[in-house]
């Protein structure tokens, strides 16, 4: 218990003393995971709209793949992205390995199936005639999609939260493709792993509390958006 209490105290000290290292890894975490979540939302909602509204042939197969993708092992994603970005890999010329962009790519690959699978289920849960009604009111395809997203916002925001959670809590792929470079690709999760490896449990616990506080803050904002009454 002393260790945890010391960790909490250290966390508060690090936050309020304006520790540059802590602010830097927190900023990196928010930047890469926020970007990855944004990409996952755009791709996931696009995929979900296509699967739910167009009902293409092979939809069940595609959905199975995205549902399985929710359990995608992050280290496998890290390995795959590393191979792709490796100097001799197909995307080696882009020189992205061990960069924040590489982490964004890996986290987006992890979060996209989560957003896509949950969003497809959310949109399929709407009354199928609601889309026809919206089109009959005179909506273009884009207007119809936005109106239907608003109708399914509770579940879609839950999908967004799940995607963000998958991205920010990820560590294996982040280290593999980012390299855990101080001042560049070190995130809260990779910093915690490093501190534990170095035996500095106090700092590791402090960083864990900061990570939890960040997640709680962002998820609270999402939840407030989710529970807000729609405008008249």
């Amino acid at each position: 218990m002393d260790l945890i209490w010391d960790g909490v105290t250290e966390a508060l000290r690090l936050i309020f003393s304006g520790n540059g290292y802590v602010y830097e890894v927190t900023f990196t975490s928010l930047l890469v995971s926020g970007s990855a979540t944004l990409i996952a939302l755009v791709l996931g909602l696009g995929i979900a709209s296509f699967l739910a509204f167009r009902a293409p042939p092979g939809r069940t197969l595609a959905l199975s793949a995205f549902n399985a993708g929710m359990a995608l092992p992050p280290v496998a994603v890290g390995l795959l992205v590393s191979i792709m970005l490796w100097r001799t890999g197909p995307l080696g010329q882009l020189h992205l390995l061990y960069s924040r962009t590489a982490i964004v790519i890996a986290q987006a690959v992890i979060a996209t199936p989560v957003v896509a699978a949950l969003s497809t289920a959310a949109l399929q849960g709407l009354n199928p005639n609601l889309r026809l009604q919206v089109l009959a009111l005179g909506a273009s395809r884009w207007q119809a999609a936005l109106l239907l997203f608003r109708e399914a916002r509770l579940s879609l925001l839950a999908a967004g939260m799940a995607g963000f959670g998958a991205a920010i809590s990820e560590v294996g792929a982040t280290i593999m493709v980012g390299g855990n470079i101080k001042g560049s690709t070190r995130t809260l999760t990779s910093a915690i792993v490093l501190e534990v490896q170095q035996g500095d449990f106090e700092t590791a616990i402090a960083l864990s509390f900061i990570l939890l506080a960040v997640i709680l803050g962002i998820i609270t904002v999402f939840t407030m958006l989710q529970q807000r009454r729609p405008p008249a």
Binding site: N127, L130, L132, Q133, R150
Partner: peptide
């Protein structure tokens, strides 16, 4: 044109 379905299909507003 305008269309009225069997269910009212109102939006959440």
């Amino acid at each position: 044109m305008a269309f009225v379905f069997q269910e009212p299909l109102l939006l959440d507003t």
